[in-house]
Amino acid sequence: MASSLTVEVRGLTKEFGDRAVLRELDLDIAPGEFVALLGRSGSGKSTLLKVLAGLDTAVTGEFTVDGQVSVAFQQPRLLPWRRVWRNVVLGLHPVVGRDVALKALDEVRLADHADAWPRTLSGGEAQRVSLARALVREPELLLLDEPFGALDALTRMAMHRLVETLWQQHKPAVLLVTHDVDEALLLADRVLVLDEGRIASEYILGHPRPRELSDHIDVRAQVLRDLGVNERATA
């Protein structure tokens, strides 16, 4: 049973000095499942993502990730001295050809920018290249670290639709780290709230896609309470 999971985390603890950012955390993600991870700043959500990406190995506890992992960060992190299509195939070993890159760029509707330098792209375009670079590796697990956080509202809405479509086509398991509750409710099968280094609450979202913002209005209120936001007071 356990072997069929894409991500299996048991008792994961991460300490910075004497401060525990993650404590005894357990997490399962099934193949093809879209999980959103919410939490206040400093709740450890980005740390968890880094551990799963293999970027932070100084942890205790156990975790297994079954298959290829890709990450898209908040900043696109393209190599400015590589043309767009070469950035897309950066993670492929051995280095593959341009046609693979063009196919991936076509999926994010940027095939005509294949030969552009990254600096000529807008923020949203660069982030789409970053997505293409993550997906071209055909990952079993796609880690998204607030990938829409730095985009303007209109671009962000378009990106939500794009990510949903790409996920439905490729069906990787997704862990989306975000502080945007609406984003999590639009996209995820399951929403987790991280607090004090553990999963504090979990919500299964059953509404068919594509969703509207109002589809999980009841869950929204609860999640906001979990995050310590009193909606009436802040509205």
Partner: peptide, 16 residues
């Protein structure tokens, strides 16, 4: 230098 032109999209037209 960084290429973080996020948020305020720097359009490609400016280069040519």
């Amino acid at each position: 230098m960084s290429i973080s032109t996020l948020g305020a999209p720097a359009r490609a037209e400016s280069a040519p």
